[in-house]
Amino acid sequence: MELREVASTPALGPLFARAALTQRGRGGALPAHGLLLAAVQVDRAHLLDYQHLCRFAGGDVLPHTYPHVLGFPLQVALMAGRDFPLPLPGLVHLENRITVHRRLTADDRLDVTVHAADLRPHAKGQLVDLVTEVDVDGERVWEGRSTYLRRGRGDANAVAPQSSPPMPQGPPAGVLRLPEGLGRAYAAVSGDVNPIHLHALSAKAMGFPRAIAHGMWTAARTLATLGPEASEPSTSEVWFRKPVLLPSTVELVVDDSGSRTVVGLRSGREGVREHLVLTLDVEAGA
């Protein structure tokens, strides 16, 4: 695949604006090229801000989800491009899968590439994957696959995506309190300034009753509860269900009885509102 190198991390505000203004008349196949951000040097101050906001221990080890934040601006740049078949506004982050091949630190120089793959029908519209791959000295060290849903005319015969394991049951292992300003705080760290996350008013304009938490913050915060093991070679999968409205209090439920740990976030009376299910598989011997 042709890789187009970008000189520096793109600013996301203008990209979101451009994507919103050019959303009509899109279609066709996925772009044949990917984007490359070469030899990324981690900004330790940024890393520490991310670690504190998601409650990872502050230090040199890159959290499981951190490279996603480095790749996300490339995802947006690719999706904002005129040759991307789906309009960016309204895309729903449905699932995310990450594999950490080796522990990464702030000393690693990361080559980050992003490409789109697997445009496919879904019962409620269309799905597309944005694949982020991170290499150090030519060795694949991290990969992520973000699955987005474009709601629209669905295909009832579409192959259903792999479903999540059941939400763990029982009393909560913990409670997370998400403040009203969380979306703005994570936007400042991740660059994801999508208005649905920033303020109740901007979220209302987009059809949400209040601002909603960034899905990848909830995934990162959930992984942080599982300790430093997740920064070692491991694979996580997360299925996003109902968005978490801000502010709110959500319950964390954990099932570690199987070979992989299953964690859920839920809220409401009897925990009826399910926000996400996440699994973590730590490589044997890691």
């Binding site: 520490l48 221990a57 230090g59």
Partner: peptide, 10 residues
Amino acid sequence: KASNQDMLTA
């Protein structure tokens, strides 16, 4: 910006 907990954990 590193906390006591960050440094002790490291």
